[in-house]
């Protein structure tokens, strides 16, 4: 097996060993290392490599933002001119209250929106102000929009690979 193939298998093993969370022990990387059968220094080296490749977005805490007081979560969706969506999407994503911003396919006739911008606030008034700021950036390039507020978090485990 190639070195890259070895890394691939080890990386997958590290994903499986940590996707539900790090062991809460004084030496967590050692615990991960013994779970995957590698040395701690190799495990931290692979974690560093996965951080720099973007396979790991970050290592840290995932808060339930509802519990932190961010109880208003609006998924704003916009029908934006295809010729302008990429340039405008960058600008919408850069707005301070926007936490995620993606272009996604329309599903006509059921769904006309191609730009999705997630907005969080401590109440709906804050979300509405953010949505107004997005509308200001998009101007006439947006033909319609809606805000879908979340009413319940039903599951938030993150990815689970077998």
């Amino acid at each position: 097996m190639s070195a890259a193939g070895d890394h691939d298998a080890l990386d997958r093993a590290i994903v499986r060993a940590t996707q539900a969370g790090l062991p809460l022990v004084p030496r967590p990387w050692e615990a991960v290392a013994s779970a995957v059968g590698a040395s701690p220094s190799l495990v931290t080296e692979r974690l560093r490599a996965m951080l720099s490749s973007g396979a790991i977005r970050r290592i840290g805490a995932v808060p339930n933002h509802w519990r932190l007081g961010w109880t208003a979560n609006g998924m704003s969706v916009w029908d934006v001119d295809d010729a302008k969506v990429d340039e405008l999407g960058q600008r919408v994503g850069a707005l301070p209250g926007v936490t995620h911003c993606y272009r996604r396919p329309r599903r006509l006739p059921a769904w006309r929106y191609n730009l999705f911008a997630m907005v969080h606030g401590r109440d709906r008034t804050e979300v509405e102000a953010q949505v107004a700021a997005i509308a200001g950036v998009l101007g006439g390039a947006s033909r319609a929009h809606e805000v879908l507020y979340s009413t319940r978090i039903l599951k938030k485990t993150g990815l689970r690979f077998a």
């Binding site: 940590t18 996707q19 519990r67 993150g158 990815l159």
Partner: peptide, 18 residues
């Protein structure tokens, strides 16, 4: 108590080949 849903690496499925 549910304040945190998880603690550890956050993986990007796309960058892991998924």
């Amino acid at each position: 108590d549910g304040t945190l849903t998880r603690f550890g690496p956050l993986f990007d499925a796309g960058r892991l080949g998924g």
